[in-house]
Design a protein around this nucleic acid. Sequence first.
DNA 1: CTCAATGCGAGACTTAGTCTCAAGTTGAGC
DNA 2: GCTCAACTTGAGACTAAGTCTCGCATTGAG
Lengths: 186, 186
Amino acid sequence: MRATIRAEVTQVALRLFIEQGFDRTTVDQIAAEAGLSRASLFRHFGTKEDIVLVDLEAIGRQIADALAARPDEERPWEALRRAFDVLTRMNEAEPDQTLSYLRMLQDTPSLRARHFEKQLRWQEMMAPEIARRLGASPDRPEDPRPSALVAAALACLDAASTGWVACAGAVPLTVLLDRAMGAFTD
Amino acid sequence: MRATIRAEVTQVALRLFIEQGFDRTTVDQIAAEAGLSRASLFRHFGTKEDIVLVDLEAIGRQIADALAARPDEERPWEALRRAFDVLTRMNEAEPDQTLSYLRMLQDTPSLRARHFEKQLRWQEMMAPEIARRLGASPDRPEDPRPSALVAAALACLDAASTGWVACAGAVPLTVLLDRAMGAFTD
DNA sequence: CTCAATGCGAGACTTAGTCTCAAGTTGAGC
DNA sequence: GCTCAACTTGAGACTAAGTCTCGCATTGAG
């Protein structure tokens, strides 16, 4: 099964990355330990970074769905905040795992970079819904407000995550995210 | 002179990247056309991306300085907006050049990724000043507000830049940036 | 003029990522 | 149970980025 293989490779890679660091782990090593060839590994995951970032694709869809499900009368910023509950709930379900994952993410430049690319896709998934709520016509790409709002919300999410890792999860992510996103309405 | 060599290599690389695309241009080709060895090129620029992104370091410092020079009574968001005038002035001075530069940036994933890394450094340069203005104690890294505000402002800048490229520079960047950053205070 | 420091080029080496080809696996239809 | 087609895999060559070492040249201070 495609999904099973991928999940297993991701598990192996995650362990190795946390044990010895992302850069000191080669794709060959991951392939060997996961019991498949280098070539096959690259067929399942486009890049080394994707091995531990593929799931973000699905998470992005979940967030976008949650956003679309928010009531129409809710203001965009509030709707975005609530859509992120998909993530905060994940954090609270597996705090330790999430913490080491985020730590690895934050101090590995190439992973940070790819993660940002994934968030750009999240942005593309969410922006149309925000544009709709703003009453912006979709054929006016020069209106930067939808992208700006979504990207800013994601920036708040990143800032909150960084703070969460910095305090080792002592302050709940929801609180930090409220503080970050609340810095605008004060 | 170090700076002279670098500027010349950057010029050559910029031309090649725009002519044939970033990915279809090899570092060897740039080195050959610029008249220096591959090894030397990598001594001046850490990566291929840096060849056209090194200057962002200095621009970041300029923006941070501009931010620090804003009056104390100005609200953080407004101060950030004004600090970006450093950039909008650059855009207006060389519209065509900036346009093709931004176009290349936006449709080359690896450049986008590195550009984001540079902006993270900008964020680190600006955040302390915003923290000061918020009266946040610097030894409380779990306060996500300074990072959130700065990152959100940069997100607005990116959204505005994207819009500016999308309309081929028809609407001034300052207008788009005002619109993007104004989406929060409405 | 000498010596030390610095900068450069040559070239080997590692690793990510792509591509091709041949062998194996699976599954539908007979 | 058999066959053929479609898909998957592994082996291995290949490209290109980035690192490292070493030996040579240039230069600047004394």
